[in-house]
Write a protein that binds this DNA or RNA. Structure first.
Lengths: 132, 132
DNA sequence: CGGTATCCCAAAGGATACTG
DNA sequence: CAGTATCCTTTGGGATACCG
């Protein structure tokens, strides 16, 4: 019979409420998701503590949780060396590096555009009306 | 005197906990932020209801709130025609279009990579261990 | 060192009803 | 039509303590 449409496993649609691609987006856009990927960008492998210090403000609990989400999506690889004290390294997988390209672009654009945002915030009183 | 460093208004640093650029990231990565920007991408102006139908699953309350955040950051422009019944249109500002470029790239990559994510989810039992 | 386990809270977000 | 207002539930995420 027709194989014209393979509805389920062809391609995601973020505009559809039930699409599994929403989960990927959710993980990447969790509070620390983007920052973790960006911190790992560059191919370097980082230890848990290094990563934690690189990402200002993240708690151990949330960093571990975020890394598990990303590992579950195949974007981060966890390498645990069986020594004591523990030595665990994280690095991006090929899939994660693809994500990192986009996320780094976004991150750098935001950072570089900050002066313009601040101008907007100053000109209008948006800071007062809305929770920042 | 030296003008070598203008610490505050030069450029953002997302890795710093207190940097205001974190607010922009937070707004864009709120549950509906990216989807709203992507839905408006293309330069077209959309009415509130059209936008709502375009973004599957968003409630009126959250769409209005998200649009206000984006408007407050100068990425979305709200054009209200004083007629009855109300007629309100939304479109991206130049700043918003710059964001849209990055976000559309991310969104399309996620959508196109869904088969690979599903493969990862199937191979490892990550769906069981972690909340999706 | 690199985590879990537990507890707790603020905030994000949904449902519903109402309004200019 | 395009919102607010209100109420309520869920959950993201911080603090702390403990463990292999």
């Amino acid at each position: 019979m027709k194989k014209a449409n393979t509805p389920s496993r062809r391609r995601g649609d973020l505009m559809s409420p039930a699409c599994p691609s929403r989960d990927v987006l959710k993980h990447l856009t969790s509070r620390w998701g983007i920052l973790a990927v960006v911190a790992l960008q560059g191919g370097s492998t980082l230890r848990f503590g290094e990563l934690r210090r690189a990402i200002g403000g993240v708690s151990e609990r949330m960093l571990a949780h975020t890394l598990q989400l990303l590992e579950g999506d195949g974007m981060v690889e966890r390498i645990a060396h069986p020594v004591v004290p523990p030595h665990v390294e994280y690095r991006l997988t090929p899939l994660g590096r693809e994500a990192a390209t986009r996320l780094r672009g976004l991150a750098e654009w935001i950072e570089g555009s900050l002066p313009r945002f601040q101008k907007v915030w100053k000109e209008q009183g948006s800071a007062d009306r809305l929770a920042r």
